[in-house]
Design a protein around this nucleic acid. Structure first.
Length: 152
DNA sequence: GCCAACGTTGGC
DNA sequence: GCCAACGTTGGC
């Protein structure tokens, strides 16, 4: 099993939205960055994924989800009216992938970016590095455990 | 809303 | 293949 973190703007897809989706899960689409896409394609069913709220008042990790469907073709790339439309993507060789996530738990508070930066275990993780714009981030097991430890 | 940092595009 | 210009991300 592997561990990950995905960034989301709470206006678009918050931890509560994932919670409301329940057992049927929620499609995680709209990734338009190659490095992030490659990580999506590395995800397997059962992997744990931290949910991180960005571009909001309280930036940080807010909950945990699991992968219930591995990478499939993101339909939005072929939707001309979608902000995620990509005119250069073809059905023969689709550029972008999506996954499906299912809610596991919401944390009682936000584990803020400021707090995350203070965890020595996370020092090398792109999440806490200045200027990093990666929206899908791999977590080593030790990093995953270090985050969970903050939540007791 | 600002702006630094980054990824992508496209002319050459 | 270089690199300037541009658009986007995301913390503050």
């Amino acid at each position: 099993m592997k561990y990950w973190l995905v960034k989301t703007e709470p206006d678009e897809c918050s931890i509560d939205d994932i919670g409301k989706a329940g057992d049927k899960g929620m499609v995680w689409d709209g990734v338009r960055n190659y490095q992030a896409r490659n990580f999506l394609r590395d995800m397997n069913v059962g992997d744990h994924v931290f949910i991180y709220h960005s571009s909001c008042a309280k930036v940080g990790i807010v909950g945990l989800a699991e992968v219930i469907e591995e990478a499939f073709v993101d339909p939005l790339q072929f939707e001309p009216n979608s902000p995620y439309f990509d005119a250069k993507s073809t059905h023969e060789a689709p550029r972008w992938s999506a996954i499906k996530l299912r809610f596991i738990r919401k944390f009682s508070g936000v584990l803020t970016l400021q707090q995350l930066k203070q965890l020595p275990t996370l020092a090398d993780n792109p999440l806490v590095q200045k200027g990093s714009r990666l929206s899908v981030v791999p977590f080593a097991k030790a990093e995953y455990q270090a985050v969970l430890k903050q939540l007791t």
